[in-house]
Simulated scan of single mutants.
Amino acid sequence: MQLTRFTDLGLRVLMYLTYRDRTAFVTIGEIAEQFEVPHNHLIKVVNKLGKLGWLHATRGRNGGLKLVADPQYLKLGTILRELEGSTQLIDCESPPCALKAGCRLKSALDVGLEAFYRAMDDVRLADIVAAPTGDKIVTLHHHYLSLHH
């Protein structure tokens, strides 16, 4: 199983925004530069995260992004389910599989995927940004500010 690029970027955005001692909003440009990803890819991700109520985006010269979800309560399983948009590893319907009527593969994969999501429900956003990750986020942000201000 591999997460989509969309989910990967969504996780990085949420992680980067957990640093609470910021004096200003974080721009999409900052995140794009930090993670070396195209600006337009991040816009789609940020829109989805905003619709989910996890971040707030403000337009304009002094605008940017701010995390509004509490990292202590936002579960990794929830994030992954929402961003992946699919709860199955294979689709036996499209195109129709000749083995569908007598195959046990899909049910085995479904059980495994559900176990994965249950395990991810035990991990909070706050857990994945604990040291040393959180320290690295602070360092990245300070480095960005020193280069751009």
Score class of each variant (00 low, 15 high):
residue 125 L to S: 09
residue 29 G to P: 01
residue 1 M to C: 03
residue 87 T to A: 11
residue 117 Y to T: 02
residue 102 G to Q: 07
residue 53 G to D: 15
residue 69 A to F: 03
residue 8 D to F: 13
residue 44 K to N: 08
residue 68 V to H: 11
residue 96 P to N: 08
residue 140 L to T: 14
residue 25 F to P: 00
residue 30 E to D: 08
residue 61 R to S: 12
residue 142 H to L: 05
residue 72 Q to G: 06
residue 147 L to D: 04
residue 88 Q to P: 00
residue 120 M to H: 03
residue 77 G to T: 05
residue 2 Q to R: 04
residue 59 R to M: 12
residue 25 F to Y: 11
residue 46 V to Q: 04
residue 104 R to M: 12
residue 80 L to E: 02
residue 138 V to D: 09
residue 106 K to L: 05
residue 57 A to M: 11
residue 62 N to M: 11
residue 56 H to I: 02
residue 136 K to S: 03
residue 122 D to H: 13
residue 53 G to L: 11
residue 65 L to S: 14
residue 4 T to F: 07
residue 65 L to W: 12
residue 126 A to N: 05
residue 46 V to P: 10
residue 85 G to A: 09
residue 140 L to Q: 11
residue 124 R to I: 00
residue 70 D to F: 07
residue 83 L to G: 03
residue 50 G to A: 11
residue 59 R to W: 01
residue 120 M to F: 06
residue 112 G to Y: 01
residue 106 K to C: 04
residue 148 H to S: 07
residue 123 V to R: 05
residue 40 N to A: 10
residue 118 R to M: 07
residue 114 E to D: 13
residue 89 L to H: 00
residue 36 E to Q: 09
residue 28 I to N: 07
residue 79 I to C: 08
residue 129 V to L: 08
residue 46 V to T: 09
residue 138 V to Y: 04
residue 102 G to A: 03
residue 35 F to G: 03
residue 82 E to G: 05
residue 146 S to L: 00
residue 90 I to G: 05
residue 88 Q to I: 03
residue 37 V to M: 03
residue 132 P to M: 14
residue 139 T to W: 00
residue 117 Y to W: 06
residue 27 T to E: 08
residue 58 T to V: 14
residue 12 R to C: 03
residue 116 F to K: 09
residue 1 M to L: 01
residue 8 D to M: 07
residue 8 D to K: 14
residue 91 D to H: 06
residue 104 R to E: 10
residue 108 A to D: 14
residue 116 F to N: 06
residue 74 L to K: 10
residue 93 E to N: 13
residue 18 T to H: 05
residue 103 C to K: 09
residue 82 E to Y: 00
residue 110 D to G: 04
residue 138 V to Q: 13
residue 116 F to W: 01
residue 120 M to C: 10
residue 20 R to W: 02
residue 123 V to T: 13
residue 128 I to S: 08
residue 88 Q to K: 11
residue 1 M to D: 08
residue 102 G to V: 05
residue 37 V to Y: 06
residue 134 G to L: 05
residue 94 S to W: 08
residue 31 I to Y: 02
residue 100 K to D: 01
residue 25 F to E: 06
residue 58 T to A: 11
residue 75 K to T: 01
residue 10 G to Q: 13
residue 58 T to I: 01
residue 68 V to Q: 15
residue 37 V to C: 07
residue 57 A to I: 03
residue 34 Q to W: 00
residue 22 R to H: 05
residue 121 D to P: 05
residue 64 G to R: 14
residue 81 R to W: 00
residue 113 L to D: 02
